[in-house]
């Protein structure tokens, strides 16, 4: 079976500073992997490389079989990115934001209207659809940002510290959406500092330190979160 993500000998150097060092990683379709690691380990850089925002210094990355440097537009179509930035225009309304991004992803007409309404309902913002995003609270922006990331039904979700700024209600909405049948089949790669939440959601755990994976294993290797923390906590210090 084709992997959702295949990374081979991936390196990234900024100036003279190596950030990622010859990484290898295969993510199977439907897998939910979480990358933990200390600050500066290269977690966000890895997500930026996979999402085509930056180019690798060496090595290759394939997303759903598409090479990120040769077919970046096809790769972008497969990806939904949720970051600590909301990626929303403050001067546009919630609905206008979703309309704009939907059209940019090639969704149009009735299908777009249907998806927008459904997602606004799911994130609890249907009554705020025509209000400007600049009037939203941080939690509301994050909920709308979840809808924006899922609008084009990506096969790979990249989640960069998605819990930053999420209130408990929005966190629940987010987790429920990830578990919903619509997105259960999609592959998820999350970067997080929240060990407990990350452990609870994922089925695969990765620890990145100084540009290299120092741990790669499955959740089933541990009896629970306590055991994971006891065995791997030292790698995250």
């Amino acid at each position: 079976m084709e992997n959702a993500v295949s990374i081979r000998e991936l390196s990234k150097v900024f100036g003279k500073t190596p950030v990622l060092k010859a990484l290898d990683l295969d993510l199977r379709k439907g897998e939910f992997a979480v990358i933990f690691g200390p600050n500066g380990a290269g977690k966000t850089t890895l997500l930026k490389l996979i999402s085509t925002l930056i180019e690798p210094t060496a090595g290759s990355v394939f997303v759903s079989g598409f090479n990120i440097t040769e077919e970046p537009e096809k790769v972008r179509k497969e990806i939904g990115m949720l970051s600590h930035d909301s990626y929303l225009y403050g001067d546009l309304t919630a609905k206008e934001n979703l309309h704009f991004f939907g059209k940019m992803y090639g969704i149009d007409g009735q299908e777009l209207e249907k998806r927008i309404l459904q997602l606004l309902k799911e994130v609890g913002l249907v009554t705020k659809a025509d209000e400007r995003v600049s009037t939203f609270s941080r939690g509301m922006k994050q909920r709308l940002s979840i809808a924006r990331a899922l609008l084009h039904r990506p096969s790979l979700l990249l989640l960069d510290e998605p819990y930053t700024g999420l209130d408990p209600g929005a966190s629940l909405v987010f987790e429920n959406l990830l578990k919903s049948p619509e997105f259960q089949g999609s592959t998820k790669l999350m970067v997080s500092h929240d060990l407990e939440r990350g452990f609870a959601l994922c089925n695969r755990l990765l620890i990145l330190d100084k540009g290299k994976f120092v741990y790669d294993g499955f959740k089933t290797n541990f009896s629970g979160f306590q055991e994971f923390r006891e065995k791997c906590g030292s790698m995250l210090a």
Binding site: S51, T52, L53, E73, K74, R76, K77, I79, M81, S83, D85, S86, Y87, L88, Y89, G90, D91, F101, M104, Y105, G106, K141, R148
Partner: peptide
């Protein structure tokens, strides 16, 4: 400037367009 607020330029660059 409006693109840098809330990381919108990054969002634009993530769209499947040239």
């Amino acid at each position: 400037v409006m693109e840098t607020e809330n990381g919108c330029l990054e969002a634009l660059m993530l769209c499947p367009v040239d």
